[in-house]
Design a binder for these strands. Structure first.
Length: 850
RNA sequence: GCGGAAGUGGUGGAACGGUAGACACGCUGGCCUUAGGAGCCAGUCCUCGCAAGAGGGUGAGGGUUCGAAUCCCUCCUUCCGCACCA
């Protein structure tokens, strides 16, 4: 059998990412390609930040999903002329280190540092352009001392204060529990199974509420709408009135005590038929009649076992207990019974409400359950006075009016609200008021692995701040965990015993540490000068580099980290420490990668995808590309164990067309021949046009981080090159241009293979090596992307009936005339009258017939 | 429950209010030759049909429009957050 007619399959070197990738990573490091000169002002700066990681020990595919597209942004920005700063660090304090310590006996610090080492190594396999020279690790004293310093500044400014707040408490272990340490619907301690109860402790707060109104303003930042909405709802500004009720005298109570309520509906004050206090309200004990004491105590205990989510759920049965005392309504002197119920929270408003069952759903449900009166005070015209309310009426219509409200009758609800509030104000029994759902930030944690709060308790001077020059207050190196007795710092005599900075007498250190969200509220400033021991933030670098131009990370941080960071920025600006009032100019929230089973990845479910295995098997470039290809970046989704074959095959094809343009595989009968009716000039032109159109699309896709369609477009271009492989145009100028653009476009997203093929191109051309990542992003030729022929869909009554080829720029009338002559159109027009023709130039023609 | 987001082939997804299903996975068929986690070509939304073609189709139901996956309303399902996980 002769083989002369089909050329032997060419044997090119196989694409071998495991050989290529470490080699280029080492080269880039050697050349310090990603070390950012923060003082270089020759190019515009671009601060690119991705949320730093908690060192849990394993980098999983979700970390790659955040970081590799962000790296593509970094590389693209560099190619388009920016001085990019792209740092990396670790959020190193936190509960998992303590849990591991309790389980294994290792010290949290050792465990954390070991994990950081492992994760740093794994991070390097991504081939990302992190500037490791600015790495930050928050559990290092050189970092957390500045948390302490900020705390002292906040304390001076009244932004930090101490107050009582409930914690989840295990009565057996005598320990404060984190939410995740409280298990099951019956809320028991994770270690001993004892029912958990809320207990009040003196704790430290940061006054984020001072900035509530400013935090509602997003005009200077370009953030996704859903995040802005979530923050707005979280802050939850409500305008209304505070109204002063007084208690009525009773056998057990002299009366005359003030009871302030907050309401958004002062217009419904005449409809208040009872009052509800939060079970934690300070007056509950004094107002409870002896006959009610037992029921009230039992109810308070029950409430202290519930979560706020349970308490606020609107679809569960309402519960409550009357105290046996009345409150006097200031507008009509009427006495109404006072109840306690869990749906009223101590921390919101004044912890007390006037209940207006006719006009509030929750109050309505409560009144129904306990047979309390329901009195309508707002009604649309024509409503009979005695018509029963089937549900709370809380709608607002233009023609509704106040009824049964004394001389306010006939007013609209908003007018009534204003009038009633003004009248109360003149009697000093009320005032307009604004309440926020957001509460001050509780930063105290009764745990050892965090930043010690820098205050001491002196028998003589009370609470005394540690002076700045005595910072940092160092965590002890080692501590013992006990089965009982809570925070080990409370048993560490060397840590505990100190002297009062004011009187030099004996003092005890604060053992609470800070919420780790304090660490993450300013870490991007520290990247600029991570080892500076004279100041937290280098103001001159802040002025050049901040705010962050682009921040990337998960949407699960919408209301906590991202709000705390904005708060910190404003507070630090007020302290004169930083220049800006917003930390992150632009934000992108990527989605979450789930396990192949569609569930959240976790070790216990056994569905964690390890990137190391994938890198070993397919190479980092394939993993990067697959994560970008699987769907829109903000969407995430389940991991597909087979999908990666697609991008891996794509990169092999890129390799093949680059290194073996003249060869072809044996399976295609038409291989080596140009498409029918196409000559070499047409083929070359087709390649050029495709390359430049792809470049135009890819450039646009970079602006919107649309990686999935970007990869698809690069696949199309590669498929086209594959089609012309082995033909007479392979390797010609048009082919070569397409090939060159393909590699440049690939560089930000698949950095290793593009660097390898680029270096071989340069070598083949006898040119000196220069990294593809130092090349300039190409620009497309407008003449080549211009469209000359368009395929125009023709519809009859909105249904597709035909496609016509027309020259771009053909006059509309000519197109319409042409369309009418088409047989398929004719067939559909037969026997019907043309009503009108909709012609969207360049898009379609729709003929409407009757 | 409250707040946010998403529902399109067997699967991941594509589609400025204008040709639904680009690009892939998987599967089927053909080819190549041989050990490569291979490669090449073709087909692949559903129904009817050899085909040309016809009809249906974007979670469900309604609406706006010449035209709706896209906009509006109601409902259903899934995912994320709810303040001590980070």
């Amino acid at each position: 059998m002769s083989t002369s007619e089909t050329p032997a399959r060419t044997r090119v070197e196989r694409y071998n990412p495991t050989e290529i990738e470490p080699r280029w990573q080492a080269r880039w490091e050697e050349l310090a390609l990603h070390r950012t000169d923060l003082h270089d002002t020759s190019r515009p700066k671009y601060y690119l930040l991705t949320m730093y990681e908690y060192p849990s020990g394993d980098l999983h595919i979700g970390h790659w999903y955040i970081k590799t597209p962000t790296d593509a942004i970094s590389r693209y920005r560099r190619m388009t002329g920016w001085n990019v700063f792209f740092p990396v660090g670790f959020d190193a304090f936190g509960l998992p280190a303590e849990n591991a310590a309790i389980k294994s006996g290792a010290q949290p610090r050792e465990w954390t540092m070991r994990n950081i080492e492992i994760m740093s190594r794994q991070l390097r396999t991504m081939g990302a352009t992190f500037d490791w020279s600015s790495e930050v690790v928050t559990c290092e004293p050189e970092y957390y001392r500045w948390n302490q310093w900020f705390f002292l500044k906040f304390l001076e400014q009244g932004l930090a204060y101490r107050a009582m707040a409930p914690v989840d408490w295990c009565p057996k272990d005598q320990v404060v529990l984190a939410r995740e340490q409280v298990e099951g619907a019956n809320r028991v301690c994770w270690r001993c199974g004892t029912p958990v109860i809320k207990r009040d402790l003196e704790q430290w707060f940061l006054r984020i509420t001072k900035y509530a109104d400013e935090l509602l303003d997003f005009k200077d930042i370009d953030w996704p709408e859903p995040i802005r909405v979530q923050q707005t709802n979280w802050i939850g500004r409500s305008e209304g009135a505070e109204v002063v009720f007084t208690t009525a005298p009773a056998d057990h109570h002299p009366g005359g005590e003030e009871l302030r309520v907050f309401t958004t509906r002062p217009d419904t004050l005449f409809g208040a038929t009872f009052m509800v206090l939060a079970p934690e309200h300070p007056l509950v004990e004094a107002l409870t009649a002896p006959s009610q004491k037992q029921a009230v105590d039992a109810y308070i205990y029950q409430t202290r076992r519930e979560t706020e989510i349970e308490r606020l759920s609107t679809d569960r049965e309402k519960t409550g207990v009357p105290l046996g005392t009345d409150a006097i309504n200031p507008v009509n002197g009427e006495g109404i019974p006072i109840w306690i119920a869990d749906y009223v929270l101590a921390g919101y408003g004044t912890g007390a409400i006037m209940a207006v069952p006719a006009h509030d759903e929750r109050d309505y449900a409560f009144a129904q359950k306990f047979g309390l009166p329901i009195r309508r005070v707002v009604a649309p015209p024509g409503t009979a006075d005695d018509a029963t309310l089937e549900a709370a009426y809380s709608a607002h219509t233009a023609d509704e009016r106040l009824v049964a409200s004394s001389h306010y009758n006939g007013m609209t609800a908003p007018d009534g609200a204003r009038a009633i509030t003004i009248d109360l104000e003149t009697r000093s029994l009320g005032k307009t008021s604004v309440t926020y759902r957001i509460r001050d930030w509780l930063i105290s944690r009764q745990r050892p692995w965090g930043t010690p709060i820098p205050v001491v308790y002196c028998e003589r001077d009370g609470i005394v701040a540690v002076p700045e020059d005595q910072l940092p207050v160092l965590l002890p190196d080692h501590w013992e965990y006990r089965a009982e007795g809570g925070n080990p710092l409370e048993h560490d005599e060397a840590f505990l015993n100190t002297t009062c900075p004011r009187c030099d007498g004996p003092a005890r250190r604060e053992t609470d540490t800070m919420d780790t969200f304090v660490d993450s509220s300013w870490y991007w400033w520290r990247y600029l000068s991570p080892h500076d021991d004279t100041q937290a933030i280098d103001r001159s670098l802040d002025e050049v580099w901040c705010p962050v131009d682009q921040y990337t990370g998960g949407a699960e941080h919408a209301v906590m980290h991202l709000l705390y960071s904005r708060f910190f920025c404003k507070a630090l600006n007020d302290l004169g420490i930083v220049r800006e009032r917003e930390p992150f100019k632009r934000l992108f929230n990527q989605g979450q990668i789930l396990g192949a089973d569609g569930e959240r990845m976790s070790k216990s479910r056994g569905n964690v995808q390890d990137p190391d295995d994938l890198v070993q098997r397919y190479g980092a470039d394939s993993v990067r590309l697959f994560l970008m290809f699987m769907g829109p970046w903000d969407q995430g989704g389940p991991w597909s164990p087979t999908g990666i074959n697609g991008v891996s095959g794509f990169l092999r094809r890129v390799w093949t067309v680059a290194l073996d343009p003249h060869g072809h595989e044996g399976g295609d009968q038409a291989a080596g021949a140009l498409p029918a009716g196409e000559d070499a000039a047409a083929a070359e032109h087709a390649l050029r046009v495709a390359a430049h159109r792809t470049l135009q699309q890819v450039t646009e896709e970079h602006a919107g981080f649309r990686w999935n369609t970007m990869v698809a477009h690069l696949m199309e271009l590669t498929n086209l090159l594959m089609r012309y492989r082995g033909t007479e145009v392979a390797g010609d100028a048009g082919w070569d241009e397409a090939e060159r653009l393909l590699l440049l476009m690939l560089a930000p997203i698949a950095p290793h293979i593009s660097e390898e093929l680029w270096s071989r191109r340069l070598a083949a051309a006898g040119e000196e090596w220069r990294s593809i990542h130092a090349e300039t992003w190409p620009t497309f030729d407008p003449a080549l992307v211009a469209v000359d022929q368009i395929e125009l869909p023709v519809q009859v009554n909105g249904k597709l009936r035909d496609l016509v080829q027309v020259a771009a720029g053909l006059p509309e009338a000519e197109i319409e005339a042409l369309v009418m002559t088409r047989p398929k159109v004719q067939a559909n027009l037969e026997g019907r009258t043309v009503v009108k023709v909709i012609h969207v130039p360049g898009r379609l023609v729709n003929i409407v017939v009757r």
